[in-house]
Design a protein around this nucleic acid. Sequence first.
DNA 1: TACCGGTAGACGGTATCACTAGGTACCGGT
DNA 2: ACCGGTACCTAGTGATACCGTCTACCGGTA
Lengths: 115, 115
Amino acid sequence: MGNQMTEMLKGTLEGIVLAILARRSAYGYEITAWLRDRGFSDIAEGTIYALLVRVEQRGFVDVEKVPSEKGPPRKVYSLNAKGRDQLAEFWRTWSVLVERIEQLHHNDNQHDEGA
Amino acid sequence: MGNQMTEMLKGTLEGIVLAILARRSAYGYEITAWLRDRGFSDIAEGTIYALLVRVEQRGFVDVEKVPSEKGPPRKVYSLNAKGRDQLAEFWRTWSVLVERIEQLHHNDNQHDEGA
DNA sequence: TACCGGTAGACGGTATCACTAGGTACCGGT
DNA sequence: ACCGGTACCTAGTGATACCGTCTACCGGTA
């Protein structure tokens, strides 16, 4: 699979995960499964854990340890106020970027074959 | 200023520049000016030169040195066949990402965020 | 003359981020 | 006793954009 997608995920993956946590609290393994399910099949498991550590250290999420019937206890992450702020900021930046790039796309394929 | 945008540009800036070169050949300084004009004011000048070196080494562009009345000679970049291929690939990856993220956004919008 | 600002390109070092490739630990079924 | 699924964690790597700075040329101004 393209490392093109890999590079594009930089800066957006964090927002994606925050958006997931905005819907409901979740733990790492659950998030990776959810992403795989939703078509983000190329995202490595370790990446999510590293990302969760980052967002925790930045104070965007609250953490609760919940015992699991299978395996080690789950670390359940919940988006807090600061995280919701960050998510809003993410959507704002994302919108700006999409708008600008779509404009480029329109100007571009006026005389081009759309693959 | 958002380093959020900075991180998001990773992986997309190359496509943006290729899209610009798809419209017409250009040199580095011209591209930075064009970007500033189009709202990408947060992109550092040096970044574009480094990016142009990369895409040249990957064979996506052809280069021609053209003397300038002011300052050193311009390096005029033109998108070639391989570059057009890469650009098409970029648009494909971009579309997939936008689709997936927009879906997330729709599922997410419990709290309204005016654009 | 001497200096400044605009044009044009280049470089070195830094930070962030996602990936690879493992490892630890717990549990139930064969 | 072993294997596979669940669940988490880490170290090292590569790509990318950033910052500050430098070279070089030109015309206008003090």
